[in-house]
């Protein structure tokens, strides 16, 4: 009996997350990559990141809820920003304002699809501006499709597990953010949806990341019951 390996489904050890971005770095003219999975309900888990800048770019977009990452999800098509400084940032104004302060000079986001469903996004960056060739775009699209099953399996195993894979480099399921959201919902007598919006809005106003603010809420050093600001 021959078994063809097509990805982790259950039972076996899940793939190591850093293997998920490695193929993109090896085969494309880019300097960094992160891989995030999403559900239809909009929940997200970042499962792989090549370096601190890839993590920063992912976090910036998560904090602001906009950027090429979200645009790729919305359009279900690749979003290519070959020159960050010259680009039109009108579809992601806050992210556009923030990204020019980073070292990323080009951004490319590719949806990851399984059949007809978009299950995640691969976010790539480059330290110098420049277009991806048609061949690179086709290659990245194929790689994103090929990695989708494995990435989904990894994210599912990670969400099912004890969360030890959440780290400073890889956001994972951001458990502390959801815990903080629950706490804020009680503090403000509101829905979890509104509570998360308040958390995100507060982080933006004080110029810190949602991750940081959430940790303060969970540590009870920050309480939304009090007037803030």
């Amino acid at each position: 009996m021959v078994t063809i390996e097509a990805g982790h489904v259950d039972g076996a050890e899940p793939p190591r997350s850093n293997a998920l971005h490695a193929g993109f770095l090896a085969r494309l003219p880019v300097d960094g990559a992160s891989v995030s999975m999403v559900t239809v309900a909009g929940n997200q888990s970042t499962v792989s990141s090549s370096d601190a800048l890839a993590t920063r770019l992912e976090q910036l977009q998560y904090d602001l809820g906009e950027g090429p990452h979200y645009r790729a999800l919305e359009l279900q098509k690749p979003v290519l920003v070959p020159d960050v400084e010259a680009a039109d940032h009108s579809v992601w104004p806050m992210f556009g304002h923030a990204v020019v302060d980073t070292d990323a000079k080009a951004l490319f986001s590719f949806p990851m699809r399984i059949g007809a469903a978009t299950v995640g996004v691969v976010d790539l960056y480059r330290l110098s501006p420049g277009l991806l060739s048609d061949r690179d775009v086709a290659q990245a699209t194929a790689l994103a499709g090929a990695a989708a099953g494995r990435a989904a399996a990894y994210a599912a195993a990670d969400a099912d597990g004890d969360g030890r894979h959440d780290s400073a480099l890889v956001g994972g399921t951001r458990r502390h953010v959801h815990q903080a959201t629950g706490m804020i919902a009680v503090q403000l007598d509101t829905s979890v949806t509104d509570a998360f919006a308040r958390l995100r809005g507060y982080a933006y106003v004080v110029g810190r990341s949602v991750d940081d603010i959430a940790r303060d809420v969970v540590a009870q050093t920050l309480d939304f019951t009090e007037p803030t600001g």
Binding site: T39, N43, G149, A159, T181, M183, A185
Partner: peptide, 28 residues
């Protein structure tokens, strides 16, 4: 296999988010 993984992802990730939110609600 990828579709099975996707279904597992939907369930596992959505459940995780709800569980963590509920922990926050209860803890506070």
């Amino acid at each position: 296999q990828a579709q099975i993984a996707q279904e597992q992802l939907q369930h596992a990730l959505n459940s995780r988010v709800v569980i963590e939110q509920a922990k926050g609600v209860l803890s506070h």
